[in-house]
Every structure is written in structure tokens, then in C-alpha cells.
């Protein structure tokens, strides 16, 4: 509770940092915001094209699934990659002015969230059009998206706290994280759905609950089942744990960050 009070006290600064990040992100390029939407869109198109080319028509996946998956995946990637340097990049600020250091990962995650909300708007339009062509409409559960967005935000916030603190102590964190991200991409249902995992692991069913422990597996599946009619969320005990353990992660990340920030100005 104490932390919420502090954040509230510094809300002016938080919004200014968010605004600084967003303006900095868009001012450099002519197309500005357009790029943040075009990137996941082109990625989705590339995935769809090559999946169809390589795997043929047999793959049980819809274009909508891939689009939703890529946009949600991009939210996490954006947070992690821009959040990595949120402390090291503000070294002069950290060394000279006192403010709760937590505001740095918080503001970077918030600005990524705003970015994602705009991306999501575009994604909803595209998915609606695709569904409309098949004579369908968005699932009514779409209205409940804010819940999963907040959850996804908090999960990303935990990651940003961890990587930004780690990056202060180990400047080669970036390489490790990039490796991890590329593995994580394939371990998450971005360009396939959970049903593919089910068919692939039919012989070793134990792998399925393990797979669902990946928070992004449940998050992306959640986005899909909320927006697409007929997409069922793979409820199971493992999925429930997949939903719950990021709460522990949030607390751990918070404690790690607060411990680490004591030495930030020494290490920068």
C-alpha cells in the first residue's frame, strides 16, 4: 500500500516521464506512431505467409489467431526491449536527483501500455473485418479485455523491473535477454494455438500442463478466447497456476528491484 501512496505522490513525474518516452519514440520518425502498428502487422503477414507456404493448408490456425498472438506478443517484447535500458539510459537523472527509482520501469511500462492500447484498437478493427468476411462478429467477451490487459501489464511490469535492474549490474544482460526472447517466442502460442500443442504432445501429455505454466501461454490464449467466437480457453489446474504465479513474480520482482536500486548510482 505504501508503494501506491508513493506513486500517487509522484504521479506528476510519472506522467511526464511517460510523455517524454512517447514523444521521444514518435518524434524521431516521420511515420511516428504508424510504425508501432505496422511492425506487428507486417510480422503477422510474414508469419501467415510462410506458415501457409511451409506447412501448407493442413495447419489448423486462423489468420485472426496469428494477428492476435503477434500483437499481444509485441506488447511484452516492447516492454522488455525498451525497459532494459530504462535505468541505465537515465543515469544522469538517477545520479543527480532523488525520486523512487521504481518510477522508471513503471513509466516505461505505462508508455508501452498506451502504445499497446492504440495497437489493440487497430488489431480489433482488422480482426473484426476478417471475422466479418466469414460472417462472424467479435465475441461479447471482448468487452472484458481490460481485465486481461491489466494482468498482462502487471506481468510485463515485473519483467521490466527485473531486466532493468539486471542491466545496471550486468551490461551484457541484453544478449542473454535476446536469446531468451527468441526461445520464448517459440515456446509461446504466437504463431500457433494451444490445440497444436495438444496434438503434438498427445504421446507425452505431461508436457501440456508444463506448457501452460508459461504466463504468456495463458495470456495469449486468453486474448484469443475473449475475442474470437468459438475459441475455448484451455482451462485446467495447470492453466490456473499459470495465471496465479505471476502474482508471486510481481512481488519478487518488486523486492529484487527495491534491493537492487540501492546501488544504482554506484553502478552507473
Amino acid at each position: 500500500m505504501h508503494i501506491l501512496k508513493t506513486i500517487n505522490m509522484y504521479r506528476d513525474l510519472v506522467w511526464n516521464l511517460v510523455a517524454r518516452d512517447l514523444k521521444g519514440r514518435y518524434k524521431g520518425s516521420v511515420l511516428g506512431f504508424l510504425w508501432t502498428v505496422l511492425t506487428p502487422l507486417f510480422m503477422a503477414i510474414i508469419y501467415i505467409f510462410f506458415l501457409r507456404l511451409i506447412a501448407g493448408r493442413g495447419v489448423p490456425i486462423q489468420n485472426e489467431d496469428i494477428i492476435i498472438g503477434v500483437f499481444a506478443w509485441q506488447f511484452t517484447v516492447q516492454c522488455v526491449s525498451s525497459g532494459m535500458s530504462c535505468v541505465t539510459g537515465s543515469s544522469s537523472l538517477v545520479k543527480k536527483v532523488y525520486f523512487p527509482r521504481l518510477l522508471l520501469p513503471l513509466s516505461i511500462t505505462l508508455s508501452s501500455l498506451i502504445n499497446f492500447l492504440l495497437m489493440l484498437l487497430v488489431q480489433l478493427i482488422i480482426v473484426s473485418i476478417l471475422l466479418f468476411r466469414e460472417g462472424q462478429i467479435l465475441d461479447p467477451w471482448t468487452a472484458a479485455l481490460p481485465v486481461i490487459i491489466i494482468y498482462h501489464f502487471l506481468f510485463n511490469f515485473s519483467l521490466v523491473m527485473l531486466v532493468s535492474a539486471a542491466n545496471v549490474y550486468f551490461r551484457d544482460t541484453q544478449h542473454v535477454v535476446n536469446l531468451f526472447l527468441s526461445a520464448w517466442f517459440f515456446m509461446s502460442p504466437v504463431m500457433y494455438t494451444f490445440s497444436l500443442v495438444q496434438t503434438m504432445t498427445a504421446d507425452i501429455p505431461i508436457l501440456q500442463p508444463i506448457y501452460l505454466l508459461n504466463p504468456l501461454a495463458v495470456i495469449i490464449s486468453g486474448y484469443r478466447s475473449m475475442q474470437l467466437p468459438g475459441a475455448e480457453f484451455p482451462w485446467s489446474n495447470a492453466a490456473l497456476i499459470g495465471w496465479l504465479w505471476p502474482a508471486v513474480l510481481l512481488i519478487i520482482a518488486y523486492l529484487v528491484f527495491q534491493r537492487a536500486q540501492r546501488n544504482f548510482s554506484d553502478m552507473l
Binding site: D12, L13, L17, G24, L93, V97, F99
Partner: peptide, 19 residues
């Protein structure tokens, strides 16, 4: 401190003040 080179003087005044 915390001036962002890409922001205008006006925007930086508010940012710096918040800091």
C-alpha cells in the same frame, strides 16, 4: 537534469519541473 534532447524547451520545462 532529465532534459530530453528531442523535446522542445517548453516540454522540457514541465518535465524538468516534475523531476
Amino acid at each position: 537534469a532529465g532534459f530530453h534532447p528531442d523535446l522542445t524547451g517548453r516540454e522540457n520545462v514541465f518535465l524538468n519541473a516534475a523531476i
